[in-house]
């Protein structure tokens, strides 16, 4: 799981162009949106694309993203349980 979390952080940094942030700067339990990484709604859409492109997870209900993107730990757990690739 640790390896998966590191990979996920690297993917998020790359896809969201978080230029000045390193994987170790991202707290596994901190909220991704709001005060955490300060992500916005476009970033949320990019994360949905990331999950589909890299893990074959198609979110049928975008509102579910709010729960899934709560933190890196929650997101990694969801991916682990639902990935098709």
């Amino acid at each position: 799981m640790e390896e998966m979390i590191l990979k996920l952080k690297q993917e998020i940094i790359e896809v969201l162009n978080l230029e000045d942030i390193k994987p170790e700067d991202i707290d596994n339990d901190a909220p991704l949106f709001g005060e955490g990484l300060g992500l916005d709604s476009i970033d949320a859409l990019e994360l949905i694309v990331l999950m589909e492109k890299n893990y074959g997870i198609k979110l049928q209900d975008p509102a579910k993203g709010k729960e899934i993107f709560k933190s890196i730990n929650v997101m990694a757990d969801y991916i682990q349980k639902n990935r098709t690739r």
């Binding site: 990019e46 694309v49 492109k53």
Partner: peptide, 8 residues
């Protein structure tokens, strides 16, 4: 995979 971040 249309990129929302590029689209804006």
């Amino acid at each position: 995979y249309p990129s929302p971040a590029l689209f804006v």
